[in-house]
Write a protein that binds this DNA or RNA. Structure first.
Lengths: 187, 187
DNA sequence: GCACGAGCGCAGCGATCGCTGCGTTAGCTG
DNA sequence: CAGCTAACGCAGCGATCGCTGCGCTCGTGC
């Protein structure tokens, strides 16, 4: 399932109210996740917070799970620009620092955990597909420069893995300095 | 919050019916998680599957979140015996292989994801506290042998991190051979 | 500027959830 | 073996959830 395969209505009218409603609902989900548990995250509550009728949410997203996936895709895509510092190390350090900073935000990690819990098709890859694409782009650039970068899997395992692991399972999210040491280890 | 701070009733009578009910409910949760989504995991459904009345589940656990945490603690504690092969590398390789095998089970990863989503106090450390304790024990034994093992955090980041990351966010859980390469990297 | 149609608000409906007294059963204790 | 108490089963109750026709509003294209 590609991130752009959103079959939901509203795409045929991207200019006006639909976009406003979508933004309001997404914002409501993030706010509620930041201040409450996912068990209290029900569609009537979301709709009420967004100033939108429950019917709209039911029709456009169907369930809390799909809504969460949509919010996660929207949140984890496009927020980070792919760094281009000239060297692979510089790119990766900048990128890892950005990811670490993003994951250190409690609201972001709460959204991630909720998405993980609500994902029905096995793992919650919606949280990482975009990051993986950015990583592949940086590594491909290094190859074009004539370097021999590590594989995507290696960087994913030793940089993204620890970062996401800490944000998901431990109480201490990684700080930027630690993220840079991860890059050093993998190079 | 220690894993043994279960304030729930039933501990004063560990020999008979309470233990049976607890086992039946835990089993029901694992079964339902394996065959359905977490959104369908409601207390009446769990109680019905376990052959127990809903009242009992409400009284002993209170909510699906606490019940999931209890199941996770029970599942992720004591299942793995700490290896003792004589060398740190042997211990870690055995241990990482066991963890990888465990996480490769779809039912286990489903339970983990559900626990992550239902955890209210931030991260879902119930999934890793016991693993961390086992790791600390192995590293302490190496210190007693006179060796200089890496820190718990290092092994956690570069072995547990990738393993849990893959099980949580990607479609390819780690196989035992790959788990051993992780150990090699950290030593 | 005007007609068309997509998307939203409104009202309400079964179904089910989460929870609470009360009586009964079953495991611990002397 | 007998008494006690913790834990469970039972029935039922508000509350709320998820969902469905219907009419209306607002963005889009001619």
């Amino acid at each position: 399932m590609s991130p752009t395969s959103q079959k939901a209505p509203g795409d045929a009218r991207p200019g006006g109210r639909s976009a406003r409603v979508r933004a309001a609902v997404h914002r409501a989900v993030e706010e509620l996740l930041a201040e409450s548990t996912v068990e209290a995250l029900t569609i009537p509550v979301i709709a009420d917070r967004a100033g939108v009728h429950s019917t709209t949410v039911y029709r456009r997203w169907g369930s809390v799970g799909e809504l969460l996936a949509a919010v996660a895709i929207n949140r984890f895509s496009g927020d980070l620009v792919v760094p281009d510092t000239g060297t692979l190390r510089g790119d990766l350090e900048q990128w890892a620092t950005d990811v670490a900073t993003d994951l250190a935000d409690p609201d972001v990690s709460a959204l991630m955990r909720a998405t993980v819990g609500a994902s029905k098709n096995g793992p919650a890859d919606v949280c990482v597909v975009d990051r993986r694409a950015q990583l592949a782009a940086m590594l491909a650039r290094e190859t074009e420069r004539g370097g021999r970068p590590p594989s995507v899997e290696q960087v994913e395992d030793f940089v993204l893995g620890p970062l996401y692991y800490r944000a998901t399972y431990t109480a201490q999210p990684g700080d930027p300095a630690w993220a840079r040491t991860l890059v050093t280890h993998v190079l």
